[in-house]
Design a protein around this nucleic acid. Structure first.
Lengths: 217, 217
DNA sequence: AAAGTTTGGTGTGACAACTACACTTAAAAA
DNA sequence: TTTTTAAGTGTAGTTGTCACACCAAACTTT
């Protein structure tokens, strides 16, 4: 039993995945998802957390289990059933050292290499799941820094769904949900005028959920 | 590695699950889900199909995998990771003989016994998944006979979501999707006037899906 | 044969949500 | 001072959703 992690990040207005270059057999030298075998007394979730932290150095990563891949010859060495997890991280927080240690690299989702075994299929499934989850759960914020602009948020959703979104409608929808806090602070990098920063108010969100609110984008 | 099946049926305007009374150890005599161990060269899906057919006698059962249960001591005998599958069957088609062979019984979802291990949690997860799937995919028909009345369809969704639905709005919504065929035939059991029978037009549905249609109830 | 009972079948108006769409503002750069 | 760039904002038209009530058909009862 193994777990494999599809690690998503968001940078340069693009979705990225973190892949490792294998320096071990089989398939040494090829690109693959970061994975690991299930250990004694460990749940699958725990194994995934272990693998994720090992590669990124981050704790408390958002992740979700996907359906298992179980074809008996999917791994040529020995029968391995792999449970994929997709994970969302703030790409700025990962540890450069660890990434180097594992010869890992961020790839744009639009253009990444062929992976070993059935890992490409796992990535496909992960994207699909991410797309549908992002519509109904506030998981997008996991991919952004603590403070973010409306533009970043919109570009993120455009990247996830691979479609353009109307600026005003998007802002209106997000504001209508009333789960963000608009800060005094402005971000001055991407424009001369500067744009206000927001944070996700998890507390307020939880309260609203209890009152029957439903996230929807 | 094992699979466990949450088998749903619909009868008497109620959702039911099919449970077996174990005549083997451990937990002999208690109620549980029907399950089985993964065999050589078999995928998890194939294992689930095998288990489902063994108990119901039906082939081509709709089923979907749920996240694995992997606590290391969930099974007291030996470490077993179990992948639950929920399945939807037309309750009229199951084989009475097989059910007897396995001392299986249909229970109302509103009132079924404590199950072994973590099986109750599996049922919980299955219900949740069924509820959300039923909103966006035409899987309800799997629980009904080939020909069904509007009332049956509505009562089914009322049972799945555990809420009352307005008769006219439901009919309007379903008709607006235009994926059912209204037959000449009437069903005369439940009313004096008789009510028209419908079938799900899978073909038409597939065509509409390709054109961008999205099932929604 | 008339009245009663039961379930089937149908339409509309009010309200909410969604979509398309364009100009002004702030600040830095030229 | 002008130009450039992205930020920020509102509305009208349309579509979808929801609440809601009566007549029809056929059998049962008296």
């Amino acid at each position: 039993m193994a777990v494999d992690c599809i690690i998503f990040g968001f940078d340069q207005e693009e979705l990225k995945i973190l892949l490792i270059k294998r320096d071990f057999d089989p398939e040494r030298g090829r690109w693959s998802l970061m994975g690991g075998f299930l250990q004694n007394q460990e749940t699958l979730d725990e194994a995934a957390i272990r693998v994720l932290t090992k590669l990124t150095g981050i704790r408390n990563i958002y992740m979700e289990q996907l359906p298992a891949f179980s074809k008996y010859d999917r791994d040529p060495v020995e029968r391995t059933i792999s449970v994929p997890y997709y994970a969302l991280i703030n790409i700025m927080e990962h540890s450069e050292e660890l990434i180097e240690e594992y010869s890992a690299k961020w790839f744009s989702l639009r253009n990444f290499p062929q992976l070993i075994f059935d890992h490409n299929a796992m990535v496909e499934k992960a994207i699909k799941r991410l797309r549908s989850r992002a519509s109904t759960m506030p998981i997008g914020f996991e991919l952004l820094p603590e403070k973010f602009t409306m533009r970043q948020l919109r570009k993120l959703y455009e990247a996830i769904w691979d479609e353009n979104l109307d600026k005003r409608n998007f802002t209106n929808k997000v504001n209508a949900m009333d789960i963000l806090v608009k800060l005094e602070e402005k971000e001055m990098e991407t424009s001369k005028k500067g744009s206000y920063l927001f944070t996700f108010d998890k507390n307020k969100y939880d309260i609203k959920i209890n009152e029957g609110f439903q996230f929807k984008l």
